[in-house]
Simulated assay, not measured.
Amino acid sequence: MLIYILRRLAIALCVAITVSVVSFALLHLSGDLATSIAGPEATAAQVESIRVEFGLDRPMTTQYFDWLGNALHLDFGKSFYFQGQVIDMIAERMPITFKLGGSALLLAIVVAIPLGVLAAIYRDTWLDRVALMIAVVGQAMPSFWFGLTLILIFSVTLHWLPVAGNESWENFVLPAVALGYYAMPAMMRLTRAGMLEVLSSDYIRTARAKGLSKSKVIFKHALRNAVIPVVALAAVELGFMLGGSVVIESVYSMQGLGQLAWDAISRNDYPVVQAVVLIIAMFYIGLTFLADVINAMLDPRIRTR
């Protein structure tokens, strides 16, 4: 188990280094940062002054290692537009995004796994068809359109929930439903496929032949093995939710990391963009590593791969 964890950790570190290089390089390849910071009306002398002030006149490798060293100490510099420390801005916005992503993932798991199990048990029945229809609609429906529809029904028409903001738990209900419904179909289909494969295996037939109850066969023997790939998918989906929450946060005017990233991109605020991309990528890598470890604990055969 230890060897497996160390191997996966080495892979995660390699991916993290690659992400840091790409996130640093992309912004510099997008054009002359000094000109973008100074603005189109700046003189050549002003552009050169900004280039020296921000260290953009140094070799690219020197800039990268300086930036990476500061990032390891959570020092991402000062925002060009907001004129504040980047880490303070991220620390203020991060709880909102994580609360939204965690709520959406919990909702998706609570709905998707039971629905996938029922669809597998009652295969080719109306319940199976309804579950598959829900999955198809969820994958085809744009999340922003679904979010606006929820606002129209539950906020504008019924007046049950607030339209926008992030002041109370009520503000997170509709965004969590909109974001969670987007992740639910893949988890439901994977649970259904896993259950169908496990229920047709030899050890399940043996358990049934021993006279075990249907509930014990399904929940104690079948579901444990069928849910293994869902664990990895849940970690990946949470990473997608953290990175892709900009759409939902914009629809519901939630001041999270997604909204911060959008504001920074629209205003060429490069230190904020770099920091948000790097932090979300690191969480994504960490969640994937954690999913690998949990899968190895649930299925010892994975440790030998």
Results as ranks from 00 to 15, higher is better:
M1R: 15
I3V: 13
Y4C: 11
L6Q: 01
L13Q: 00
C14M: 13
V19A: 14
V21Q: 04
V21I: 15
V22D: 11
L27N: 08
H28T: 10
D32C: 03
D32E: 01
L33R: 12
A34F: 07
S36R: 14
I37D: 04
G39I: 02
P40R: 05
T43I: 03
A45Y: 05
V47C: 09
E48D: 14
I50F: 09
I50H: 09
G55Q: 00
D57M: 05
F65P: 11
W67M: 09
A71M: 04
H73K: 11
H73S: 06
S79G: 08
R93K: 15
F98Q: 09
K99M: 08
L100S: 12
L100H: 11
L100C: 09
S103A: 15
L105E: 01
L106V: 15
L107R: 03
A108N: 00
A108D: 01
V110E: 06
V111N: 00
V111E: 01
V111S: 06
A112I: 05
G116M: 12
L118D: 00
L118R: 10
A119R: 06
A120Q: 02
A120H: 01
A120E: 00
Y122K: 15
R123L: 01
D124V: 03
L127R: 13
R129K: 01
A131Y: 05
A131C: 07
M133S: 15
A135S: 13
A135T: 07
V136M: 08
F144P: 02
F144C: 12
F146E: 07
G147N: 07
G147M: 07
G147T: 09
L148I: 03
T149Y: 12
L150F: 12
L152W: 08
S155W: 01
S155C: 06
V156N: 00
V156W: 00
V156H: 02
T157I: 00
W160C: 13
L161K: 12
N166L: 00
N166Y: 11
S168R: 14
E170S: 14
V177M: 06
V177I: 15
Y182H: 14
A183T: 00
A186E: 02
M188T: 08
M188C: 07
L199N: 09
S201N: 03
Y203S: 11
A207E: 12
A207M: 12
A209N: 05
K210T: 13
G211R: 12
G211M: 08
G211A: 13
G211K: 10
L212A: 12
K220A: 09
L223W: 08
R224L: 07
V231Y: 03
A232I: 01
V236C: 03
E237Q: 15
S245P: 07
V247A: 05
E249V: 08
G258L: 03
Q259H: 03
A261W: 06
A261T: 09
D263A: 10
D263V: 10
D269L: 02
D269P: 02
V272T: 10
V272K: 05
V272C: 08
V273P: 10
V273Q: 03
Q274E: 03
V277G: 01
L278G: 06
A281I: 05
A281C: 10
M282L: 15
F283V: 14
F283Q: 10
I285Q: 02
D292S: 04
V293K: 06
I294S: 08
N295Q: 15
N295F: 03
M297L: 15
L298C: 07
T304L: 04
R305V: 14
